[in-house]
């Protein structure tokens, strides 16, 4: 009976994993296909990787995507943190509920609508004040900041609500002026949250196809836009190679993050044991 159940569980697990990973494995396998027609196997080769690396368009798109992602993540973290601070630490100011609702609106708004409305904004602006004169890096970055910021604000908000407010009071009590409290206590404690926000904003920006394709202009292709536009004309082996590189990069990132978290957890457990051991020492000392 028990054996039966474990076989069932095992096959379910295999099915689940297969469902998740077979498409990606297929993609990786076909990226090493020598044949020009994707579904027909023509032998193992690095041919399409070579094509990929020699294509200047791909490099430009990658560079643009990374540039946008970094600038976006940085600004979104900055503004999102400020918004989170305002919402949690400034008490009840006029319009707080409205602000709090509006900050999370981009999270639920369909991307198509966000993209469309931003496009309209940029067109109107360029008509009236002549800026932005052309759409590309600047407009995509601004568009990305508007929605990434909301995610950062939510992360910071939850970190702040979980933070003991008496830490800030203690700093003040010890002679730190409000700005000092922010730089000495609040921000260092928020740092992990800000890093998480930065990484999330970075990923969101790299991922985004819909909003970017609305607000981009001629000649400014981010990586997702490039991939999508090429795939529209049919499956292409060089895109398989590109996708494989992305998958491997992401996998390495995830494994690395997992390892770091595992090590931190170990460290935390060790610290706790250490503190408990000291306590025992202390007790025996006093009873002796």
């Amino acid at each position: 009976m028990k054996k039966q159940r474990s076989t069932f569980m095992f096959s379910m697990l295999c099915f689940g994993l297969a469902f998740l990973y077979i498409p990606m494995v297929l993609l990786i396998v076909y990226s090493f296909n020598h044949s020009k027609i994707v579904p027909i196997w023509g032998g193992f080769s690095f041919r399409w990787y070579k094509v990929l690396f020699e294509s200047p368009e791909v490099w430009q798109a990658l560079l643009l995507s990374l540039k946008i992602a970094v600038v976006n993540a940085t600004f979104a973290t900055l503004m999102g943190t400020l918004a989170g601070l305002a919402l949690v630490r400034f008490g009840r100011f006029r319009g707080r509920t409205l602000f709090s609702g509006m900050i999370s609106a981009p999270l639920v708004m369909p991307e198509v609508i966000t993209g469309l409305s931003l496009l309209l904004l940029f067109i109107t602006l360029s008509q009236f004040i002549g800026w932005p004169s052309e759409r590309g890096f600047t407009t995509i970055t601004i568009a990305h900041i508007t929605f990434s910021m909301a995610y950062v604000a939510v992360i910071i908000q939850s970190r702040l609500t979980g933070m003991d407010e008496s830490l800030e009071e203690a700093a003040q009590d010890l002679g730190a002026k409000p700005l000092r409290v922010l730089t000495d206590i609040t921000l260092p404690i928020l740092a992990p949250g800000m890093l998480a926000g930065w990484l999330l904003a970075f990923t969101l920006s790299l991922d985004d196809l819909v909003i970017a394709s609305f607000v981009t202009g001629p000649g400014s292709n981010t990586l997702p836009i490039l991939i999508y536009s090429r795939i529209r004309l049919g499956l292409r082996p060089d895109i398989n190679a590109l996708a494989t590189i992305i998958i491997v990069t992401v996998a390495i990132g995830v494994i690395l993050a997992g390892y770091i978290m595992w090590r931190q957890e170990k460290q935390r457990q060790r610290d706790q044991q250490m503190a408990a051991a000291d306590k025992l020492d202390f007790d025996t000392e006093t009873t002796a």
Binding site: D164, E169, A171, Q172, I185, I189
Partner: peptide, 20 residues
């Protein structure tokens, strides 16, 4: 007189030690 200039110090119930 604001908290940061008062000649008093407080020991908090939660201790409020700076974790970092």
């Amino acid at each position: 007189i604001p908290a940061y200039e008062r000649p008093v110090n407080m020991m908090f119930q939660s201790y409020a030690l700076f974790p970092h």
